[in-house]
Design a protein around this nucleic acid. Structure first.
Lengths: 190, 190
DNA sequence: TGTACATCAGTGAACGCGCGTTCACTGATGTAC
DNA sequence: TGTACATCAGTGAACGCGCGTTCACTGATGTAC
């Protein structure tokens, strides 16, 4: 049954949102088109009226995830606050609302080119954003960029490692998080 | 056709080796039982005479990957040498022979419990091994363990991030590797 | 040592299932008069 | 503004494919005599 253009646009956004959440939670291959559509409150048949393929949705979901993450960045958030929030049990246990780099980094390599491209774009914009934070702290342009690259890679490593054992060795997972946080704080003097 | 017990044992090892390589290269879900068996020089029908399930093979392949990695650790390898080899274009481009943590970290969470358990065991033994390296350098037990945890997480983050964009933005990928290496070297005074 | 036979590693066809995708159909929308 | 009709977002059955898994069968192994 046909619906309002506004309703259809809302549906489109709902699909992307649902995909963004469940792809981050279960990986691109861990959730199917049917499940995403049901999460969006629709049936699977309507999917190909909105997207050309699952890969196209994955790319959109990837783009949305990065965009959402940067858009909810609080105005006065310090680097210390950012690191603390990133390396937290909450972030580890809620990948669906978390960093898309940590969620997609190691599986995006096996995804279609369209997904890889959108991921690389998001990564670049994320690096730029953190670079600006370091520049605001007085670092030179080149050094700020290096710091941003290293900090983000380090954070991703910490959360990815913590998640990899969070259901098997909770204590080790907690240790990774706290040790990484302490190390980063001392390294950057936060 | 029946084969010698020795041949059968060789086949068993060949399957694990092939799985270890292709799982690290393509992920647990990126390669099927048929492909693994063909890589091992057999047909898929023989698989369930060797393993109870694909998950059981994944667990064995995981265990083997960690074991192989530690067993080929050169006797006199310094931490600086280890870091240099880890954060290299060669390691980035050859995950099939590389670190199982970097290869499996973010997908092991979606694998059956038996795989998760074997991964956690390998991770723990890897941390212990690097801890011993730091102890040999004169660090106290607790500090050595912390250093090992942080170093490994940082290395994994670097290689995972570099791999995530290696087919899309080679320059950024190279930058991540070199910036991470420089940062780690200066942090640990290598 | 030689022979007959039970064992069993490996083969390849087949099964069931879930997935991404397609399509004929429905009925509310929104446009032309 | 009201009516008739073309449009098209959404539905749900169906398709093809690849995957993990099963199984009847083959024929070399290795054992019992």
């Amino acid at each position: 049954l046909k619906v309002t253009k506004e309703k259809a646009a809302e549906h489109h956004e709902a699909i992307i949102l649902a995909a963004s959440r469940s792809f981050r939670e279960n990986g691109f291959d861990g959730v199917g088109v049917i499940e995403v559509m049901n999460l969006a409150g629709l049936t699977h048949g309507a999917f190909y009226g909105h997207f050309q393929s699952k890969a196209a949705l994955a790319a959109e979901a990837c783009r949305f995830s990065f965009e959402e993450r940067l858009s909810v960045w609080p105005a006065g958030l310090t680097l210390a606050g950012f690191v603390s929030g990133y390396l937290s049990a909450k972030h580890r246990d809620q990948p669906s609302h978390g960093c898309p780099m940590a969620a997609f980094a190691s599986s995006v390599g096996h995804q279609p080119a369209i997904v890889k491209r959108e991921y690389a774009r998001g990564l670049e914009s994320h690096v730029r954003h953190v670079t600006a934070q370091f520049e605001a702290l007085g670092h030179g342009k080149a050094q700020a960029r290096k710091n941003a690259t290293v900090l983000l890679s380090t954070l991703v490593g910490g959360i990815v490692m913590a998640r990899s054992v969070s259901h098997t060795d909770r204590r080790l997972s907690d240790t990774i998080i706290s040790d990484m946080k302490r190390s980063i704080f001392s390294q950057y003097g936060l």
